[in-house]
Computed example of a mutant assay.
Amino acid sequence: MRIAILEDDPNQLSHLVRTLEQLLTIGETSVTCITFSNGSTLQQALRRESFDLLVLDWNVPGMAGVELLQWLRKWQTDKVPVLMLSSRAAEQDVVQALNLGADDYIVKPFRPLELRARVQRLMARRVPVAPSDGERFGRWEFERVSQSVLIHPAPGDDAPPQRHALTDREFKLALTLFQHMGDVVSRAHLLESAGYSTEELPSRTLDSHIYRLRSKLGLEAESGLSLRTVYGRGYRLESTHQPQADS
């Protein structure tokens, strides 16, 4: 799970990162927090990077958290969950943030267990915090125990399902792409999800993984899903099914 945090108070930031990493690391689910103390710096990062969750303070240098939220919902198509975490407790402030697209709002000082519960609720729709043994996305079924993907036949096709074994890193990459269906996933996000450290970030290695996933899982237009390169950012897995015209 990749979380961007906008907070300019070092003590608050340290406490928040420690809380999220300790409380949300469960089983194979690990948490990576990328921190920002300036709203404008985070805005620039969001033009090229992707995250599973944004945690935004309101009063920060550069660009206020609520201004960043407004920009994000207006100009970015990826609907990343946003949690506002602010000392501003007035009802009109909470309502303003929610109306601008925040998914939740917590008033400081936060309570750790409440924070975990709210983050888990937000993340349930995208990245399961306590993953089950498998997940299914249309015809593609991921099985964690065997690290394989079972591709079921299209409706009306009597062919048996096809099983494709993946390496550990291929499995994690593919699952991340499917969990973010329709959204751009940045290269750094994908590499981190596959277990590469931020010091490694081997660009050509990622391209090789993507090439093999396209082939193994049939991620081409005729299959109904297409894995596309988004120049300067990363990759997007999207549906290629078009509504049928009336006859």
Rank of each mutant, 00 (worst) to 15 (best):
L69S: 02
T77D: 14
R118T: 06
A90E: 15
P112G: 04
A97M: 00
V80T: 11
P131K: 06
M123T: 05
V66E: 06
D133H: 13
V127C: 07
I106E: 02
E135R: 08
G101D: 13
M63K: 02
L115M: 02
R139S: 08
A102N: 01
L98G: 09
D103H: 12
R88E: 07
P112Q: 05
L85E: 07
D93L: 11
K74C: 12
A130S: 15
Q70L: 14
L115R: 01
V129W: 11
Q96L: 07
E141T: 12
D103C: 14
R111T: 07
L85W: 07
P81A: 03
A97L: 00
R116L: 14
D93G: 02
R116I: 10
M84I: 06
A130Q: 14
V94E: 00
Q147P: 15
Q76R: 15
A102D: 00
S146G: 09
P131F: 06
A102P: 00
R121P: 08
E135Y: 11
V66D: 04
P112H: 09
V80E: 04
Q92V: 11
F142Q: 01
R88M: 05
Q92M: 12
L85V: 05
L83C: 07
S87K: 14
R139F: 11
D104G: 03
M84F: 09
R136Y: 09
S87P: 11
I106A: 01
W71N: 07
A102E: 00
P128W: 03
L113F: 15
P131I: 05
L122E: 06
R144C: 13
G138I: 02
L85Y: 05
R88W: 10
L68N: 00
D93F: 06
Q76E: 13
Y105R: 00
K79M: 15
R126L: 12
Q92L: 14
M123F: 04
E143W: 12
